[in-house]
Design a binder for these strands. Structure first.
Lengths: 201, 201
DNA sequence: CCGTATTCGATAAAAACATATCGATACACG
DNA sequence: CGTGTATCGATATGTTTTTATCGAATACGG
């Protein structure tokens, strides 16, 4: 139960998701070897990752599936739902608002903001972006998702921070500068793509 | 001009995008210091990245903007357009089909496939997924983008590979197993989110 | 009840990556 | 024409992450 590295943290949700697929199969136990093969990771890596959060498996048996799931969910804070708002309800923003998969990891998107307000997307309201600073505090959202064009991404980020968000998930293709107290995750799709293209050569 | 590490490769498109914003400003030269400040990266890191692809900058002056852009574009293969198809035209798939930013990095999405064909999204046709193996070869697409539910992601990947794609961009929340000859980039949004949530604590 | 195969956990080695330091170069300015 | 300063490139150091190795523990078969 020591500290968890950033790269380990990235894999934990993947383990969790995989383990959940085992539940319907009534498999009680799972070995690190088995996990590593299913996910295409190194065997030792998996064991090390699991060691950092779980309280151990048993030789010849492996880890107890349900206990491991519970540990992972607890660690990742599933259940303690974080609320988020999306700024920029274009195609990508809409897609994220409709996306079902976030609930599994404890995120609830409560509203959207856009220059063009609309009655609602996926049952959630879309307000005028001008009212962001006034509405956001009472929503209790701690995460801001940025899906606006590159030109205004930094402005939106600044405004979100001023309104009190603790974390920013940035889908625009520019790097965003923030105070140290705020966490940022850049999700530059165009960059990811370039990496893939290059690998293909 | 040595080999380029994976993490460097991830940053190159970011540099490229930033440099392009300088063109309208008629700025002839740019220093690594300036880039590092604008993007929030280490100064030395930027210099090292650029050294690995460019043929050098000049002290007191910096790098020549246009030459650097040309070098980056050449290295990243912009111009040599790769074609891609999207399998799974739900909300996320639609968003990607509409997204304008990919062209900048040399990707053209030529068609979509779904269990429910539709007349077209963003001017691109959406075919029945059953006809994937017959239509894909004549399209000349080398990249397959997977935006289907987790349960069928592996099946779709297998079929894409059988149809001859060289790379897969996987947006489903499961890890996909592929032969070594095929490049995969997993874009697990739920996992990214978990990392962000955890950072906020 | 004992040997064997499997699996865990810990330590050590290796690799990848980021950061720091330093001399060299080229322009600016007096 | 010399000095100062900004900036590059290279080397070195430190950190993080992955991979390899080894002993110990435990269930299962005989």
């Amino acid at each position: 139960m020591q500290s968890v590295s950033k790269s380990t943290l990235k894999r934990l949700p993947i383990y969790l998701h995989y383990l959940k697929t085992l539940v319907p199969l009534d498999q009680q136990n799972i070995s690190a070897t088995q996990i590593s093969q299913a996910l295409g990771l190194g065997e030792v890596l998996v064991r090390k990752d699991l060691a950092s959060i779980s309280n151990g498996g048993r030789p010849k048996i492996g880890y107890e599936v349900h206990a491991l799931i519970a540990t992972l969910e607890d660690y990742l804070g599933v259940g303690k739902v974080s609320k988020a708002v999306i700024v920029g309800v274009g195609r990508l923003g809409q897609a994220l608002m409709m996306y079902k998969g976030f609930g599994e990891f404890g995120l609830e998107i409560v509203a959207g903001f856009d220059v063009r307000p609309s009655p609602g997307v996926g049952g959630k309201p879309v307000y005028d972006v001008k009212s962001l600073s006034s509405l956001l505090p009472q929503m209790g959202a701690s995460i801001g998702i940025i899906t606006v064009p590159a030109a205004v991404a930094q402005d939106v980020a600044d405004e979100l921070i001023r309104a009190g968000v603790k974390g920013i998930w940035n889908f625009s293709p520019v790097h965003i500068v923030v105070p140290q107290a705020v966490a940022v995750k850049n999700e530059n799709l165009a960059a990811s793509l370039a990496v893939l293209s290059k690998q293909i050569k």
